[in-house]
Amino acid sequence: MPQHAVRRTARLRRLVASAVAPALLALLVLVQAPAAAAYPPDLPSKAVAQAELDALPVRAEGASAPYDRDLFPHWITVDGCTTRETVLQRDGDGVEVGSDCYPTTGSWYSEYDGETRTAPADIAIDHVVALAEAWYSGASEWTTARRQDFANDLTGPQLIAVTAEVNSSKSDKDPAEWVPPLASKRCAYAKMWIHTKARWDLTVDSAEKSALQPLLDGCSY
């Protein structure tokens, strides 16, 4: 091969290598990087949530006995951690725990009000569908074991770490009475509420369903 052709081929190889190497490196990082955890877990799409909302039985709230929070045993301990401690680890950033599983460091962003806290004592674990709400929407007919499962549900979007203040303001209100102060979080909140009620075969009352529909309409996906 002529010398000038050899030099041209070498230059071409260097150019290709300089162009391809960054792309290969980016691909390698992408492959090696851990996938972000779903947050909150099992959040449905708009279409799924709409189908679930349409299928939820509409019924006035009621129960054959008065509500008592002790009828929903929580927080239970699994593998050395309580459900509360598990959610604190799941929902926080840079969380480190002691031998008792309680966080010693970390920060928590509250999806309802946009506030961040660094002390776990300032964080509440909200039952998206409050225990009292569940009681009057069908849970009064459940066994204690099923109510315990509901109160400690880590599989669906029923538990979320938020500031104690916003959790107190929400209390046991349904979406006809309360929505997150952050308008950008109301779509996700509606999906969480609907999916939880659908997963647990709970009912909605007419005002609740009417409030949920425009929240869901505001979702882009």
Rank of each mutant, 00 (worst) to 15 (best):
Q158N: 05
A145K: 13
S168W: 13
S137A: 09
R146N: 12
G156A: 03
V166Y: 10
D174M: 10
G156C: 06
W135E: 01
T155F: 07
A134V: 01
I160L: 15
E177Y: 04
S140R: 13
V162P: 13
L154M: 10
R186T: 00
D153K: 08
D172N: 14
I160N: 14
A145F: 13
V179T: 11
W135L: 01
K170I: 04
A151D: 04
N167P: 07
A183W: 10
K185F: 13
D174A: 04
Y189E: 07
W135M: 01
S140N: 15
Y136N: 03
F150A: 00
L182I: 02
S171K: 13
S169C: 06
R146V: 12
D174P: 12
S169D: 14
Y136Q: 03
S184H: 06
I160Q: 14
A139I: 03
F150S: 01
T143S: 15
P180W: 04
A134W: 11
F150D: 03
S137Q: 11
P180V: 00
S137E: 12
E165Y: 10
A145S: 08
V166H: 11
D153C: 08
W135D: 01
P175G: 00
S169F: 12
S171Q: 13
S169P: 08
L154P: 09
Q148H: 01
T155H: 07
L182R: 05
W142V: 00
P180R: 06
K173Y: 13
V179M: 15
A139F: 13
E177N: 05
T163R: 11
S140M: 07
G138E: 04
S140F: 15
L159C: 02
S140K: 11
N167A: 03
W142A: 01
R146W: 13
D172L: 13
S168C: 12
A151C: 06
W135P: 00
P175M: 05
D149C: 03
S169A: 05
L159K: 02
A164M: 10
K173S: 04
E141V: 04
A188P: 07
S171D: 11
F150C: 05
L154T: 03
W135F: 02
Y189H: 08
T144I: 14
G138S: 05
